[in-house]
C-alpha cells in the first residue's frame, strides 16, 4: 500500500515544541487544536514567538463587536508591524444573535491598515498553516481570525469539534477567505453547501431558536457570501 500512496500529513514536522501535551484545556477544545497548528506553522520563528503576548480584548482598531473578550495572540514582527491571531470561541454571553455569527473583523482589519487579513478554521489545518505563514511573511501587519468550537459552551459532543468547525465552513456561516493587500480570495469553496439549519441544529446553544431566526441567518449568510464571491470574482477579472 505504501508504494503508491502519499498523504500530505506525513510531510509535517512531527515534533511538538511549543504546545506539548498536558495543558489544561478541556477535552476536545478547538482553541487548543488551533493554537497547536499556529505554533506548528511558526515553529522556526522561535525568537519572535518568545516576545508574543496575549490580549484579552481586540485592541483599538480591531475592536470587533462580534468578538468581545476573545483572546488575541499578538506577535511582533519587523518594525511596528504585528501579527494578530484571534481565537474566537464565540463566547458571547447567554444570547447568540445572527450578527455575532457572521464575522466582519477581517474586512475591518483590512480596512484599517492590515496588509493581510484572513479567516481560518482548525478543520482545515493546511489552509490554516498556510495563512499563518503568509501573514507572517507579508511586509506589514496581518490579522487572522480562527473559529474555535467549544464543546462545553456550544453544546455538542466533544468528539465532534472538528466536524462542527468543518460544518461552519460548509454551511458558509464561516467562509474561509483571505484579503491580501485588498484582493479577496476564497480559499475553500464548496459547490454544494450545507444549509445553515444543518449546522445550527447540532448545537445546544441554538435550542431556543425559532425557525424565523434560522431563516434570517440563512438569508444573511447567503447575502454576505454573495458579496464575498462578487468581490473575489471582481479581483480575478
Amino acid at each position: 500500500m505504501d508504494t503508491y500512496t502519499l498523504f500530505a500529513g506525513q510531510f509535517l514536522p512531527f515534533n511538538e515544541r511549543y504546545l506539548p501535551g498536558g495543558h489544561n484545556a478541556c477535552a476536545g477544545s478547538g482553541t487548543a487544536l488551533a493554537l497547536r497548528h499556529v505554533y506548528k506553522a511558526l515553529e522556526d520563528k522561535s525568537t519572535d514567538l518568545a516576545q508574543a503576548r496575549w490580549d484579552e480584548t481586540p485592541t483599538g482598531i480591531f475592536a470587533a463587536s462580534e468578538t468581545p473578550g476573545a483572546p488575541v495572540l499578538i506577535i511582533p514582527k519587523a518594525g511596528e508591524n504585528r501579527l494578530y491571531i484571534c481565537f474566537d470561541a464565540e463566547a458571547v454571553g447567554k444570547k447568540t444573535i445572527p450578527d455575532q455569527l457572521i464575522k466582519k473583523s477581517p474586512a475591518k482589519a483590512a480596512a484599517s491598515g492590515c496588509l493581510y487579513a484572513a479567516t481560518a478554521s482548525p478543520s482545515h489545518p493546511f489552509d490554516l498553516i498556510e495563512k499563518i505563514r503568509r501573514g507572517w511573511s507579508i511586509a506589514g501587519s496581518a490579522y487572522i481570525h480562527i473559529l474555535c468550537p467549544c464543546p462545553m459552551s456550544w453544546g455538542f459532543e466533544m468528539e465532534n469539534t472538528v466536524r462542527i468547525a468543518r460544518m461552519a465552513v460548509e454551511a458558509r456561516v464561516f467562509p474561509l477567505y483571505e484579503i491580501a493587500e485588498g484582493h479577496y480570495n476564497i480559499t475553500v469553496e464548496d459547490m454544494r453547501p450545507r444549509t445553515v439549519a444543518d449546522y445550527i441544529g447540532r448545537q445546544a446553544r441554538f435550542a431556543s431558536w425559532k425557525k424565523a431566526q434560522i431563516a434570517t441567518l440563512q438569508e444573511q449568510t447567503d447575502r454576505l457570501y454573495a458579496q464575498l464571491h462578487n468581490s473575489a470574482a471582481h479581483e480575478m477579472n
Binding site: G28, S29, V162
Partner: peptide
C-alpha cells in the same frame, strides 16, 4: 490504518505521535 496522519493532525492535546514503524 493507512498512516495518513489525520489522527495526528486533529488531536488537540498533542497526545498522538508517530512510532518507529510509521
Amino acid at each position: 490504518c493507512a498512516r495518513c496522519a489525520l489522527c495526528y493532525l486533529y488531536c488537540p492535546d498533542a497526545a498522538i505521535s508517530r512510532q518507529a514503524d510509521g
